[in-house]
Amino acid sequence: GPGLTDLFKTEKAAVKKMAKAIMADPSKADDVYQKWADKGYTLTQLSDFLKSKTRGKYDRVYNGYMTYR
């Protein structure tokens, strides 16, 4: 089956995709945050998933999740 690194890459891609969806349409934020909360994502995990070469690119999404939880 898929190894943990593959799983991480898949999760990371999914999280980034959802983060971009929030940035494009902030009204989606609560739905996405709820999904992440259901998956039990911690802020540390989210921070790892949303690492970007562009500093602060996903800060709004991260901060939103922090206040959501």
Rank of each mutant, 00 (worst) to 15 (best):
A37S: 10
S27Q: 07
K57C: 04
Q45T: 06
E11Q: 08
Y65Q: 00
K53I: 04
R69Q: 15
A19M: 03
D31R: 10
K28E: 05
K9H: 09
S52D: 11
P26W: 13
D38K: 09
R69L: 15
V32A: 06
G40M: 04
T54L: 07
F8Y: 15
K12G: 06
R60I: 15
M18Q: 14
G40I: 01
A21F: 06
K57Y: 09
F49V: 04
K35M: 15
G1H: 11
T10W: 11
L46C: 02
V61T: 01
R60P: 12
A13F: 05
A13G: 06
K28I: 14
Y62K: 12
G64R: 02
I22K: 01
A21E: 14
L43A: 08
Q34Y: 04
K12P: 03
Y41P: 00
M66F: 07
Q34G: 11
Y41I: 12
S47V: 09
I22H: 00
L50W: 02
V61W: 02
Q34A: 12
V32N: 03
K16V: 13
T54G: 06
G64A: 04
Y58K: 01
S52P: 05
F49G: 01
P26N: 05
K12Y: 04
A37M: 15
K53G: 11
Y33W: 03
M23D: 03
K20R: 12
L7V: 08
M23Y: 04
L4P: 14
S27N: 07
K39N: 08
P26K: 05
K51C: 14
D25T: 04
Q45G: 03
N63P: 02
G64S: 03
D59I: 07
K53S: 11
D48Q: 13
K20I: 07
A14D: 07
D48R: 15
E11D: 05
Y65E: 01
A24E: 09
L43G: 08
L7N: 15
S47W: 12
T54Q: 09
D30W: 13
G1V: 12
Y68D: 02
N63H: 12
L46Q: 00
F8C: 13
Y41V: 06
K39G: 03
T67G: 08
A29L: 02
P2V: 10
G3A: 15
K28D: 03
K57A: 06
T5Q: 14
P2L: 09
K28C: 14
D6Y: 03
D48E: 14
K20A: 10
S52F: 05
Y68P: 01
I22L: 09
A29P: 01
T67K: 14
A13E: 10
P26G: 05
T67I: 15
Y65G: 01
T44V: 12
A13S: 08
Q45E: 07
S47R: 14
A24L: 11
Q45N: 10
T42N: 05
K9Y: 09
G40P: 06
A24M: 13
Y68R: 02
R60D: 15
D31T: 10
L4S: 12
K57F: 10
A37G: 04
K9F: 07
T44M: 14
K53M: 06
M18E: 13
D31C: 15
P2C: 15
K57W: 06
T67R: 15
W36G: 00
G64K: 02
K20P: 00
R60W: 14
K12C: 09
L43W: 04
T67F: 11
G3S: 13
V15Q: 01
Y65W: 03
K51S: 13
K28P: 01
G56T: 07
P2F: 03
G64T: 01
Y33P: 00
D25G: 02
K39L: 10
K16D: 03
F8I: 09
I22Y: 01
A24W: 05
D48F: 15
D25P: 00
W36Q: 00
D48L: 13
N63W: 14
P26D: 07
K20W: 08
P26F: 07
Y41E: 00
K28N: 08
Y68L: 02
Y65F: 06
T67S: 13
Y33T: 00
V32T: 07
R55A: 13
M18N: 05
M66Y: 07
K28F: 07
A14Q: 12
S47M: 11
I22F: 01
Y33K: 01
K53A: 09
K16H: 05
F8V: 10
G56V: 05
L43N: 05
S47E: 10
G56K: 05
L50V: 02
R55L: 14
D59M: 07
L7W: 15
D6R: 06
G3R: 11
K35L: 15
S47P: 01
K17R: 13
A37R: 08
A29K: 04
G3P: 11
K28A: 09
A19F: 02
T42S: 11
P26M: 06
A13H: 08
N63T: 10
T67Q: 15
L50N: 00
K17V: 08
A13Q: 09
S47H: 13
